[in-house]
Computed example of a mutant assay.
Amino acid sequence: MTTSVKRKSNPTKINLWLDVAIFAAFLLALDPRLTGIAIHEWLSLAAAVAVLTHLLWHWDWIIAVSRRFLGRTSGAARLNYVVDALFFIDLTVVMLSGLMVSQAILPWLGLTAPAGSFWRILHSLSADWAVILVAVHTALHWKWLVNAFKRYVVRPVGALRRQTEIP
C-alpha cells in the first residue's frame, strides 16, 4: 500500500515567488533595448497576467480595505491601497499604450495601430511612473519582503550548506 503525503500550499511562499517573478519581468521589460522589442512585448504581456494573478491572490484584502477605506482601517492600509490603485491604473495605461505601439504582438494578431506619437509618449510617461510606483510599493512592503526572503531563501540555503559541509 502506497501512501502519499499531501503538502499544504504555503500562501506566503507562493506570494513571495509570484512577486519575485513579477519584479524580475518588470526589470527585464523596463528597457526594450535590453531584450529586443518582441521579448519586451511578450514578457510585458506575461507580467500583466502575473499582476492580475497577484491581484486575485489578494482579492480578499482589496475587498476588505475597499469596504472600510473611509471608516475603520489603518493609515498604512489606506496608503497601501491608494498606491496599489494608482499602480494598477498606471500599469493598465502602460499595457494599453504598449499595445497601441506594438511592433510584435499586434502584427502577430494581424492588427495595426494608428500612427502618431501620442501612444508612444503616453507609454513612455506611464512606464516612468511605473518605476516610481513599483519603488513605493516595494518600500511599503519591505519588511514583509525581507522576512519572507529570509524564511524561504536565506534559512533553507544556510541549512543546506550546513548539511553539505564536511566536519
Results as ranks from 00 to 15, higher is better:
A113G: 12
S4D: 07
E41Q: 11
H137A: 00
V94Q: 00
P11W: 00
L109T: 13
H141Q: 04
F87T: 11
T53G: 11
V5C: 07
A47H: 00
S74K: 09
R151P: 04
V134C: 11
E41G: 02
Y81L: 11
K6S: 12
K8D: 11
A77T: 00
L91K: 00
S66N: 12
E41M: 02
R151K: 14
A104M: 08
W108F: 15
K6E: 12
S9Q: 03
D19Y: 08
L43I: 12
A148C: 08
P167G: 12
V136G: 02
A85K: 01
M95E: 00
M100K: 09
T164F: 15
W142Y: 14
W129V: 07
P32K: 05
I37P: 00
W61A: 01
L109D: 12
V131S: 08
F88T: 09
W61Y: 01
R161A: 15
D90G: 04
N80V: 00
M1A: 14
V153R: 06
L43V: 13
T53W: 13
V82F: 04
R68M: 05
T12I: 01
S9R: 04
P114D: 14
P156S: 10
V83I: 10
R78M: 07
M100A: 09
L55V: 06
R68Y: 06
F26S: 02
Y81S: 02
G75P: 02
L16P: 01
T112W: 03
S124N: 04
L70I: 06
V94C: 02
V134Y: 09
I132Y: 14
A76M: 03
K13A: 06
T138I: 09
D90N: 15
S4M: 11
A25K: 03
